[in-house]
Simulated assay, not measured.
Amino acid sequence: MKHGKKYVDSEKLIDRSKYYDSAEAVELCVKTATAKFDETVEVHVKMGVDGRHADQQVRGAIVLPNGTGKTIRVLAICKGDAAKDAQEAGADFIGAEEMVQKIQGGWMDFDVLITTPDMMGMVGRLGKILGPRGLMPNPKAGTVTREIGKAINEAKAGKIEYRLDKSNIIHCVIGRASFGAQKLQENFDALMGAIVKAKPAAAKGQYIRSCVIATTMGPGVRLNVNRFGA
């Protein structure tokens, strides 16, 4: 794949033979964010587990100290008092059966779906639609809860979910280049701390195998994972 001049120039700032500490890596990401828009900063963590086994799953959620820099559109599928709580908390869309039907019809104009336990029988029908997009509500992520108002506030504040993909890699956004190195570092530390804490008891060998941080349009920076002690 041929890259543009900006990418090539950015790549020259990175030593491909080196594994950087997180502070240096974040600084480099900010420096290499040369696009005309405010680039997203992403972390990609290769895990030493096998997600095909239930006892080796790594999944959870965390509110980043400085948010993600993205305006989050929240859909709350609930009824009764929960719907009132959702409205007070500032959910962008609220409903029940009609929202399920809307999604079945192709509507996907939301970033987070939060629901209550009593609605999961209905929401479960959307698994084939929501699952591949990472939008299926889950109790571990706090998106299936009776405290729906709290969950909405957390989502709006920058709560992110981390989970393994089919290659046992976790992909997460930790902010935007405009945040600057310090805020990105704080978000990175919070995310990695949560991942380390979520280590399954069944995990054997090296838990975190590699970690790369990159902006939307920039080259990846490899990190030294020894500091995580996992």
Rank of each mutant, 00 (worst) to 15 (best):
K6R: 11
Y7K: 06
S10F: 05
S10K: 04
E11I: 00
E11H: 10
E11Q: 10
K12F: 05
D15T: 00
R16F: 04
K18Y: 08
Y19N: 13
Y20G: 00
Y20T: 02
S22V: 14
A23M: 13
E24H: 01
A25G: 08
L28P: 01
L28V: 10
L28G: 10
T34S: 15
T34P: 00
T34D: 08
F37I: 08
E42L: 07
V45L: 12
V45S: 03
K46D: 14
D50G: 02
D50E: 08
R52M: 06
H53M: 09
H53G: 00
A54G: 09
D55V: 01
Q56D: 11
Q57C: 00
L64P: 06
P65Q: 06
N66R: 03
T68L: 08
K70P: 04
V74C: 08
V74D: 06
A76D: 13
C78H: 03
K79H: 14
G80S: 11
D81E: 11
A82C: 10
A82I: 03
A82L: 12
A83R: 03
D85N: 15
Q87F: 13
D92G: 06
I94P: 01
E98T: 09
M99Y: 04
V100K: 14
Q101A: 12
I103K: 04
Q104C: 02
G105H: 10
W107G: 05
W107K: 07
M108C: 04
V112M: 07
L113P: 00
L113F: 04
M119L: 15
M122R: 14
M122E: 13
V123M: 05
K128I: 09
K128N: 12
K128Y: 05
L130Y: 09
R133A: 11
R133P: 01
M136C: 12
P137T: 00
K140A: 07
A141S: 12
G142A: 04
T143V: 08
R146P: 06
G149K: 08
A151F: 07
I152S: 01
N153W: 02
N153L: 14
K159S: 03
E161H: 07
Y162C: 04
Y162E: 06
L164Y: 09
N168F: 09
I169N: 12
V173G: 13
V173N: 15
R176F: 02
G180N: 12
A181E: 13
A181P: 06
Q182I: 01
L184H: 09
L184C: 11
Q185N: 12
N187F: 01
F188E: 11
L191H: 00
I195T: 00
V196R: 13
V196P: 11
V196C: 14
A198Q: 11
K204T: 14
K204M: 14
G205Q: 10
Q206Y: 05
Q206E: 14
R209S: 09
R209D: 06
V212G: 07
I213E: 09
I213Y: 03
T215W: 08
T216R: 12
M217Q: 12
R222M: 11
R222Y: 15
R227Y: 13
F228N: 03
A230F: 02
